Simulated assay, not measured.
Amino acid sequence: MKELLRTNDPTVIAFAVAILEGEGIGCFQMDVHMSVLEGSIGVLPRRLMVADRDLFQARAILRDVDLLPDDR
């Protein structure tokens, strides 16, 4: 699995998951329950992971909806 996206904004993760699942790309959210350790202040970023084989296509899809910068 490769990291596709890292953000402190849970709405960005939710939007990215919806877009990727709609395109048939499986993804996995990491660090979702870290708020227990940080006290729910949103300091620790969440990561969105995809399979190695889906990374190129997932990056292209998220770039098209302006969730990823062009250099990533």
Rank of each mutant, 00 (worst) to 15 (best):
M1F: 06
M1W: 03
M1D: 03
K2A: 11
E3K: 15
E3Y: 00
L4F: 02
L4G: 01
L4V: 01
L5G: 03
L5Q: 02
T7N: 03
T7K: 03
T7I: 04
N8A: 11
D9Q: 12
D9V: 06
D9R: 11
P10F: 08
P10D: 09
V12K: 11
V12Q: 07
I13L: 11
I13R: 05
I13P: 02
A14Y: 01
A14K: 04
A14L: 09
A14M: 06
F15E: 10
V17Y: 01
A18Y: 02
A18P: 00
A18E: 08
A18H: 02
A18M: 06
I19Q: 11
I19S: 05
I19L: 08
L20I: 08
L20S: 04
E21Q: 15
G22A: 06
E23Q: 13
G24K: 09
G24Y: 07
G24C: 08
I25M: 04
I25H: 03
G26S: 15
G26H: 10
G26L: 12
G26K: 14
C27P: 01
C27D: 07
C27N: 10
F28Y: 14
F28K: 14
F28C: 10
M30S: 12
M30L: 13
M30Y: 07
M30W: 02
M30F: 05
D31R: 13
V32I: 10
V32D: 11
H33F: 13
H33N: 13
M34T: 15
S35V: 10
V36D: 09
V36N: 10
V36L: 14
E38C: 07
E38G: 04
G39I: 07
G39S: 07
S40T: 09
S40R: 13
S40W: 13
I41H: 11
I41D: 09
G42W: 05
G42A: 05
V43C: 06
L44K: 10
L44Y: 10
P45A: 05
R47S: 13
L48N: 04
L48F: 02
M49S: 00
M49L: 15
V50P: 01
V50D: 04
V50H: 06
A51E: 15
D52E: 15
R53D: 14
D54P: 01
D54T: 04
D54W: 02
L55I: 05
L55C: 05
L55H: 10
L55W: 04
L55A: 10
F56W: 04
F56G: 13
F56Y: 07
Q57N: 10
A58M: 02
A58G: 02
A58K: 01
A58P: 01
R59Q: 15
R59H: 00
A60H: 07
A60P: 00
A60I: 00
A60F: 00
A60C: 07
I61T: 07
I61Q: 01
L62T: 09
R63C: 03
D64C: 01
D64E: 15
V65A: 09
D66V: 05
D66F: 12
L67H: 08
L67E: 11
L68K: 05
L68Y: 04
L68D: 03
P69T: 13
P69F: 11
P69N: 12
P69C: 10
D70W: 08
D71F: 14
R72S: 10
R72V: 15
